[in-house]
Nucleic acid binder design. Sequence first.
DNA 1: CTGAAAGCGCTTACAG
DNA 2: CTGAAAGCGCTTACAG
Lengths: 336, 336
Amino acid sequence: MASIKDVASRAGVSTATVSRALNNHPAVAPDTRTRVLEAADTLGYHPNGVARSLRTNRTRTLGLVISDVLNPFFTELARAVEDEARALGYSVIIGNADEQPDLQDHHIRTLVGRRIDGLLVSPADGEAPVLRETARAGRTPMVFVDRSIPGLDVPVVRTDGTGAVRDLVDHLHRIGHRRLAVIGGPAATTTGAERVDAFRHALARYGLPLPDEYIGHGDFQVGSGRRITEGFLDLEQPPQAVFAADNLMALGAMDAIRERGLRVPQDIALAAFDDIPWFLHTAPPLTAIAQPTGDLGRAAVRALVDRIEGRPARSVTLTATLVVRRSCGATERSSR
Amino acid sequence: MASIKDVASRAGVSTATVSRALNNHPAVAPDTRTRVLEAADTLGYHPNGVARSLRTNRTRTLGLVISDVLNPFFTELARAVEDEARALGYSVIIGNADEQPDLQDHHIRTLVGRRIDGLLVSPADGEAPVLRETARAGRTPMVFVDRSIPGLDVPVVRTDGTGAVRDLVDHLHRIGHRRLAVIGGPAATTTGAERVDAFRHALARYGLPLPDEYIGHGDFQVGSGRRITEGFLDLEQPPQAVFAADNLMALGAMDAIRERGLRVPQDIALAAFDDIPWFLHTAPPLTAIAQPTGDLGRAAVRALVDRIEGRPARSVTLTATLVVRRSCGATERSSR
DNA sequence: CTGAAAGCGCTTACAG
DNA sequence: CTGAAAGCGCTTACAG
């Protein structure tokens, strides 16, 4: 591949001048610039970003480590992150941790080795020594998005779903449901714990308990949603409504319910955290708590780039909202 | 950040020895190796991958340019690509072209600038000078996945859906549908054209025509599926069945059908190319043509790595299969 | 406005 | 088994 030297000799200037011309440095004579550009063009020259990065100590690349690309919430998040990053002049490398802490650590190690300028992480459950160490060392600017690890000095950009969960419980209560169950995420993920807590507190406002057998410990993936829902249905007193802490576990719940020949909402009500386009077309359309996912991703990138470029980065909390559809029953005709 | 020099001086050896010790070069005395590893460890040394890449002229990185990350088919493809790449020791950088040829070209330029070792592309519709030039120059090993650009000397890893489309038409015909319409992709994408052609040929086997007004020219995105379906429904003789050439356009079709207060399959049958988990839970569950998406992604990576490592790369064609659900009507009770 | 030179952090052929 | 040295392709402070 043509290098800067080739361009320099063809244009009859030094490599320093080629570099300046190509980087729009002001101190380059107009016709020198023209000659350089022509030479670069005829040689099909593409500057070597690796060499530039080594020299400038910047890669103009962001790392994004998420727990599951196949989860539509994270897909949308990743897309927003990439869009905003591109707008700010950065590329992004995505690492998919698949909810496995060691895969997450593997990605972080690789990304740091590549000298990305900054790191966006939505931490998975479990021990993640590399993540902790990277955050603690503070050499790579980092921002948590969606989920966080308490106790680390890292800004977090997240959504607060407390109000929306309260709205959901109001909705369920109004319909007449009293036995409410939740499929939570891994306890060690902040979102996993928060959503269950919010649910419990919302129930308490009606004097309703959240017994242990109505709390499922899922992992944000389809299989756990299914398994936990089967457990609920096997109970002597199955719940009247199930709230899944993410969309994949809701999908698993639908699988389980359908396999038993039961119907939503006639036999059991269902709602999910995270809204996705398909929920409009499920049978029935699913009531869900919608995060402003695009805003979340963009805010995270801005916070990270602020850190990278030496500005102070603030944590950001956005607000989720309840989207009522038909999966919890109709409000009009009281309970069933 | 600690560099190889720091490790060298702490271990009392040269940087050459540090490099060898860290890269498991055989010619390093055991205790020297130990001393180096200890030094690296206490300094929290992470080798600078940028410098290494500059020196070795390899980045151990693959580029993947796809047309739409939000399309579950591509999400799954990307995931498989990343898994296989990791298994072979490569990272992957994803570029989302959003079905825009210039965004696609932007990503290719960026990736080539980063000196990725190889490029996997699912080309978008339209003029893509950078893509063509990159393929023609042949400096960056390239493999097309899913879609291709005819006339370029680039291996392609794809799925053949001809048989599955024939099965679909058999299925529709058996149910009694005779007026069959198709929502195609952009004519310039190979998959866009192939799926429509396969459909047309399958109809011909029954002596059924595929009139122009039953051919929609979509762009693989939700909006076009909706718009085209509305057009179909506005026809004097609306089709009895609609085949959408990807899952997002099928989603758009469902939107349009629902808005008119019509039902699938009673009022109109619907089937899609690409099967996704949600199709099990739509109202009704959607009949779809399933690609072996994971295999596709993995085969593409292997073909690309073959090229990168100097082995000959072969094109690969996998086979799609029809998954019958309920969105075309029941075969048992003849037609409606 | 331009160039010579240093240097970013590695790897590796060469010599011993 | 180990080290000195060159060099990958850039950018940039310095000098003119």
